[in-house]
Write a protein that binds this DNA or RNA. Sequence first.
RNA 1: GCGCGGGUGGCGAAAUUGGUAGACGCGUUAGUCUUAGGAACUAAUAGGGUAACCUGUGGAGGUUCAAGUCCUCUCCCGCGCACCA
Length: 813
Amino acid sequence: TEFFKNDIAYRGKGVVNWCPGCNTVIANEQVLADGTCERSGDTIEKREMPQWMLRITKYADRLIDDLDTLDWPEHIKEAQRQWIGRSRGAMIDFKINITNANDSAESSTVNRTTLMTVFTTRPDTLYGATYLVLAPEHPLVAQYEAQISNWTEVAAYIAETKQKDDQDRLDNTKEKTGVKLEGITATNPASGEEIPVYISDYVLASYGTGAIMAVPAHDERDYAFAKKFGAEIRQAVAAIFNESKNIGKERVGIYGLIQNDKGDYLIQHLKKPGYFWLPGGGIDDGETEFECLERELLEETGYDKFVIGEKITEVFYDYPAQAKYDGRNRAIIYRVTVDEGSQSPISYTEKEIADDMQTKWVPTDQIKKLLDTGEPTRSAFINFVIDIANGSIFSSNGYLVQSEEFSGLNSEDAKEKIVEKVGGRMTSTYRLRDWSIGRQRYWGVPIPIVYDPDGKAHPVPKEHLPWLLPEDVDFRPTGEAPLAKSEALKKRAEEIFGAGWTPEVETMDTFVDSSWYFLRYLDNSNEEGPTSLKKQAEWMPIDIYFGGAEHTTMHLLYSRFWQKALLDLNLVTESEPYKRRINRGLILGPDGNKMSKSKGNVIDPDEHVKTVGADTVKMYLAFMGPYEGANYPFDLGGIAGVRRFLERVYGLSDHIVDEEPAEMTKLLHKTMIKVRSDIETFKFNTAISAMMIFVNQAEKNGLSRDTYLAFVKTLAPFAPHLMEEIWHDLREEGSVHEASYPIPNPQLCEDEVVTIGVQINGKMRGSITLAPDATEAEAVDMALLNVDVARYAEHITLKKVIYVPGRILNLIV
RNA sequence: GCGCGGGUGGCGAAAUUGGUAGACGCGUUAGUCUUAGGAACUAAUAGGGUAACCUGUGGAGGUUCAAGUCCUCUCCCGCGCACCA
């Protein structure tokens, strides 16, 4: 009810996900990637119905930004960032013009000065925006019904879009469809040009403003659409190669990507091997681009009959200051074809050119290979031009061209400046949608809302909370909310609020409950409220929260939002519920798939507990690999080893001696240190391995009763049953689990000698044993006495010695 | 396509974070014991070679006295997002 009063919960309308299997609405997060229900596996349908929603989108920025403060695995944070899907960009208004000759201001009710807002992440490409596209559902489309002269066609397309399910619509491999809106146009606010307006289902109503400015030169989807619908493609940003910070002056060069009738490319080989370039050159004063290109091509290729085609692209190429032509070269590249057969062979008109550059025909299938051998930036430039000529799109940042006063700026700088000029605003949009929480199920918390006789929603006042589920209902889901059939609930509402008042009959998504259960756990007998601030101050936030990867964009996101919403209402003390998150791995079925009844690969651990015991099964699972992350197919192969280990631990009582060797005491303390630190870092597999090493040695060397007891205590958390039994067999008091966990003494672990490797010229040639603090001279002497080492070092003088005490000795000879 | 993880023996995996790669366990091989099978125990077990040695952490380069570990490129696998403007 607090959420309702504070506009965090609201009654929304619109399209929801309906699961026919569960007979209820579910949230976006609960729809899997293949369009099926997370719970039942049924294919989700879209339905339009009013819904109780929570404004999680209002918290999008905080949900992203606060991730930085958390000690969580990076991939989980990243998955949440992606799910929220923030993109920074700008809102830009385009004026809508009515061009329908049959329309007049007097006869129409439509606002003559309507603005169409689009969202774009690339305002720097605004001068390349040659048309607008609206989602077919966009409200503006229907408003202009009278002005759109091809309305029949438009209406048919809108109807067609509604038919399509999401899967179809999201299939980006299919061809673009759409309809041009005849009778209206828009004005590009930067260039002032009038541009056409289309509707197409590649624009989603639910994202951004449901409308885009299309920049076919720099966006693949817009490009595909423009190609199909014949819209203009205009470059606004140019790629840059060999970018240099200190550019002196800008010059313009015109170049040709020349092909013959076979498609071969005419590539210039400069004098320096591997320096490839395209024929062409700098524009002279007073020359047109065509004149320049014709002149240059004749000079540099010797051909005199070209067909100059369309402009492919403009590209910047920086020459370093010391080069012959220093500065930034704006290279304008045209497509050129040559009929090789009808021409005389290449002959050069200038000697200098003949010496400096040769042009050669390179077949299509060899061009990439040749460029790979060339000087990288030049080859990259030519490669880029060929790719663009073949239909690639330059969609990265670059430097602006054909953008009036912004030409020459880089994309980043241009973005804000252009937005400023056209009166737009920088903003962010999100992929995240509000959380729909109403469910047509019995099993859930009833939504504490009642409707007055006019149908207006009111929160149930505090004194009537908790608002409990009625019990006089058949809870099987039918598609109708089961609570609608409850006479008790209806009666309760009328008795409290008066005749004509009706209760909300939907219940809440169970993810609502799990969003704050931990807060109630702290204070579960509190009658005054959900949980007291005092208890929270003592316990929150949760230090470590374990769970599965499936919660990443559901429970973990919902409960973070919940916490922040409560924080704004001063009901909690922390802005984040979980300080540290650890995703545990999964034990998979023997076939490597997630265990499921339908796959028939479910392993019942109890069966194995019956044969080898619970301690063995548990330890085996812990021993298979690290706790965090990885998933393991259940494989009984190694379980015997763990069972054997436990039997040997039990049998250690036969190896008890009065005086144990000092090395056993040392090993005990080393083992205790290792086990402790491995427990702290959740590396149970290596902890167990260390204890196995201890047992191997104890059997060989014997161990004292005290050492045995300490070891039993160390192992107790891993094998609680057996250790308890040994504890009793040793006639110790009470329970091993009540005994304090043994504290290792690091001083006992210090080694008097260590074995280190000896390398000659970095190759391992032997090992020596010496004191850990031995000097370099001592180490070298020791090494030279070692037969394995001496063999290599004999008769050779030492050039250099690298000695890392306790680690390695490397002799350079 | 974009983002995030990973590629180490026959298998699950270790590696003090740049310092003897493969700890520990499974499996395999040989041996001991046993009427036999199993269990248990002992030894061996990255690959090649009689050996000295050589090669080896997906692949190709690089940095370093020294690289599984750092850098560049590349291939493969898993997960997330995806007509998101």
